[in-house]
Every structure is written in structure tokens, then in C-alpha cells.
């Protein structure tokens, strides 16, 4: 279980408890959080679950796989140093307190 904060570009902030086994993407989908599409269902294909991770939240994330890195080249909103695909972030206790910003657009 992890408490995850999703911040919408229009200012809405949603804090939810996401149980394992899920991903940060799935946590958003299950809670109707607007701004995560995840068309491919979480197989790192489509780049429509793009998030910006708040680096001040103190959560250490798993390292980025080459495929995730490649997919991030095609995101609809600009890629930044803190860009991740939320489908590649499995929820565990270690993610408790994670804060992510949702991009302006996913597709």
C-alpha cells in the first residue's frame, strides 16, 4: 500500500491509497484520475501514462528500463528529467508518499 498524490495541471490534487500489486498508472485509472490514458494497458507501448515525478517527495523509484526511456521520446507533453511512464512504477510500501504531476496532454 502506498499513498500517492496526483497533481493535475489545472490544480486538482487527488491523494489515494493504492494497494499492491498495482502500478502508479493503475492507481490513477482505478480512481478515475483524469489525465492518465494508458491505452496499451501498461505494456510500455504507448506513452500515454506519462507523469512528472516530484523529486522533492523523497521516494526512490526503480531505475528506468531502456524501453521506457525510448517510449518517453514520443510523449505528447515535453519530456523532462523527471519524466516516467507510470505503468512502469510498481506500487509497494517504498512508494508511500510519492507525488506526481500529470502533464497537460497524453495524446
Amino acid at each position: 500500500m502506498a499513498k500517492i498524490t496526483y497533481r493535475h495541471p489545472r490544480g486538482t490534487v487527488t491523494v489515494v491509497d493504492v494497494p499492491a500489486p498495482n502500478t502508479v498508472m493503475r492507481g490513477a485509472k482505478l480512481n478515475d484520475i483524469d489525465g492518465i490514458e494508458a491505452q496499451c494497458g501498461g505494456s510500455a507501448q504507448c506513452g500515454t501514462c506519462h507523469v512528472y515525478v516530484d523529486e522533492d517527495c523523497g521516494v526512490v523509484l526503480p531505475e528506468m528500463h531502456e524501453v521506457e526511456d525510448d517510449v518517453l521520446y514520443g510523449t505528447a507533453s515535453p519530456r523532462r528529467a523527471n519524466s516516467r511512464l507510470s505503468c512502469q512504477l510498481p506500487v509497494s510500501d517504498a512508494l508511500d508518499g510519492l507525488v506526481v504531476d500529470l502533464p497537460q496532454a497524453q495524446s
Binding site: V67, D70, S107
Partner: peptide, 14 residues
């Protein structure tokens, strides 16, 4: 095996 090409060209075609 070239996901970056796919991701970028999808955006270009849009």
C-alpha cells in the same frame, strides 16, 4: 525493437 522511432513517428503523424 525500436520503440523510440515508434513513439516519435506517432507524434509526427498526429
Amino acid at each position: 525493437g525500436r520503440p523510440a522511432d515508434h513513439a516519435i513517428t506517432r507524434r509526427l503523424l498526429a
